[in-house]
Design a protein around this nucleic acid. Sequence first.
RNA 1: CGGAGCGUAGCGCAGCCCGGUAGCGCAACGGUUUUGGGAACCGUGGGUCGCAGGUUCGAAUCCUGUCGCUCCGACCA
Length: 445
Amino acid sequence: MTMRLSRYFLPLLRDTPKEAEIVSHRLMLRAGMIRQQSAGIYSWLPLGLRVLNKISNVIREEQDRSGAIEILMPTIQSADLWRESGRYEAYGKEMLRIKDRHDRDMLYGPTNEEMVTEIVRSYVKSYKDLPLNLYHIQWKFRDEVRPRFGVMRGREFLMKDAYSFDLDKDAARHAYNRMFTAYLRTFARLGLKAIPMKADTGPIGGDLSHEFIVLASTGESEVFCHSDYLNFETPAADTDFDSVAGLQGVFDKWTSLYAATEEMHDKAAFEAVPEDKRVSARGIEVGHIFYFGTKYSEPMGAAVAGPDGQPVLLHGGSYGIGPSRLVAALIEAGHDEGGIVWPDEIAPFDVSVINLKAGDAATDGAAEQIYKHLLAKGYDALLDDTDERPGGKFATADLIGVPWQIIVGPKGLAEGKVEIKRRAGGERELVSLEAALDRFKGRVA
RNA sequence: CGGAGCGUAGCGCAGCCCGGUAGCGCAACGGUUUUGGGAACCGUGGGUCGCAGGUUCGAAUCCUGUCGCUCCGACCA
């Protein structure tokens, strides 16, 4: 996908709207990624939508790799389902309740355990159909008392939620480990160092609930962990997700050292970590996984026939990642004075070709040649063909954070050269036009 | 839900205390000169002052109500 900036819709803001407090919110507004429509509710503009979709695709690929199967459930749900689980009364004001024209109680789903359990109980009848993990990527609504920080804590948010169904707790643990491993891979691909931290399991108990936390100075909560986690190796792409022992190994390794959020913090255990390895920082929760056993299958009657023909209640778990929140988390983790610095894999564009003198035959020709080349090689390229001044173009490119800039100006071109700039480090290199083309041989997916 | 604020042009703000019919910077539009890190000059357009009621000869300004939004706290993917 390529785009000419002169014909694109990129409403940049030079000044920061006053309501934006944290850097990701400020930059998302300035870069024309989102538009607030109501407290905690946003429209996604072209640049923001591109990033959101790229994140969702990485999540989707890793969910699929782990064996989860994508579906799509509706945003609006019937209250009856929630009455079955007892959560219609229990949920409180965070749930947005609405009535349809027939005066039936409906709601805008804050999550989908009841609905997916309804689907599974009506079709899955045998232990042979297990294990099963269904996920979807859908908009959710939680009527937070106080939405804030832009899309970091919105009321409407995009969420990938997966739901696993197994015959017993041991099988459910393997399902949990599959998601645990998939999450490690997902966050690594997004360029994030996410550390699984033990989370409150509520009434279920056990050790099967983890929050995945990204360290960031603007994080919402205090976290404590062992610094070796930051250098742990990510599970490989060819990880065998059917290997019970293999995935248990991944889980054991990634839970071997101390890591806890403020709520779960154990001072004594943290003191046992060597002093030079103690990390005390702020963190952003980007994922949350947990096992809940028969919490929904029991009241909703979701059972299959076991090997002996007797009914067995399904053991479930659910696993969430918020793509819309991740957009903000990625900016919190990657920005500088000039603007956003996207990781390569989820940047809205791979390369920005900057024609410093639009209208000049030489720069127009060279910029066009490079742009067409990138298109042919499968890159997402943005061509800045506007008649803005060079300074403005540089500022725009830096603000929106495209990883590579190819700068085509009359001075360099007079010697047959263009400049390649890396957004992240700011390194610039003057190379021949041919060398520049040769540098971008094809996008590695 | 407690506490504190703010709604005046696309964005940032002044004007409000002390009522007299709206202004500044940026952005936009037209023009001239510019052109390698957010140019200069000249000109132009754009606002039922959140909304409703009240006081007054007259309300952005004073009073009442209402809606929206933000920040701090408690709560949450």
